[in-house]
Every structure is written in C-alpha cells, then in structure tokens.
C-alpha cells in the first residue's frame, strides 16, 4: 500500500540526480530491496508504472534486486542466510541472532540518457 509513496520518494531522488547530471531522460532504475524493508518488489513495480508518468523517468524500467536476509549468531558466531520469519542460527539453532542485512531499501543506480 505504501509502495506508491516509496516510489515517489525514489523518483524525487532520481529527478535530482538526472538534473545534476544534465540527463534528458532515465532509462533504468535499479533498487535493492531487503525482505525486511516492508516493501514488496512486485507492488513497487506496479506502483512505479503509475508514479513515473510525467517524470524524467516516464519511460524508465525499474529493476528490483531482492537481497538476502543474513544473520550472525550471538552464541556461536556463525553467519548464515535466514528467512525473514525465522531468524534462527543455521549452525546451533539459537534464536539470539543479529541481523547483518535484509532490511535495506536502496536506490542502487540509475542509467541516464543525455540527448
């Protein structure tokens, strides 16, 4: 539901970058989404088709790169991949783990066209 406001925030950043780089349009936007970021890639892509209208990215493609949840065990020190609703150490099974990555929501790169 909030994917549209996320899209608008992203496009505001993209507009600023395109202006700074004197680009005439944006070809591609790459975002990196962690499973714990609260954003669903599919919904973000849908929202993007609405949000991009009239912007410098009106014809741009949106690539969503889903990141992995990774945790570090506070007990045994192991690092492993986990699912977002089961953050348990893959080595010793302890639940006292620390999130290393998986909650990010990043604008990774934009491909700009200058004509």
């Amino acid at each position: 539901m909030h994917e549209l406001s996320v899209c608008q925030a992203m496009l505001a950043q993209v507009e600023a970058i395109a202006k700074r780089e004197q680009a005439s349009r944006v070809e591609r936007i790459v975002v990196r989404i962690g499973p714990l970021s609260g954003v669903v890639p599919e919904l973000l892509r849908q929202a993007f088709t609405i949000a991009r209208a009239g912007s410098v990215a009106a014809e741009a493609e949106l690539d969503t790169e889903l990141q992995q949840v990774r945790i570090r065990c506070r007990q045994c020190g192991a690092e492993c991949a986990a699912s977002s609703n089961r953050m348990i150490c893959c080595e010793c099974g302890d639940f006292r783990t620390q999130l290393i990555s998986g909650d990010e929501l990043l604008l990774a790169s934009v491909e700009l066209i200058r004509e």
Binding site: Q13, A108, V110, E111
Partner: peptide
C-alpha cells in the same frame, strides 16, 4: 546521438523521511 551512462548511488530511498 544519445549517450547512456550508469550512475551508482547506493542511497536509502527513504532518506528524506
């Protein structure tokens, strides 16, 4: 001719918030 280039950003999308 159009020129295309990639700008690497790595910026939090919700940085304004």
């Amino acid at each position: 001719l159009s020129q295309s280039r990639m700008v690497q950003i790595e910026q939090d999308i919700l940085s304004k918030n």
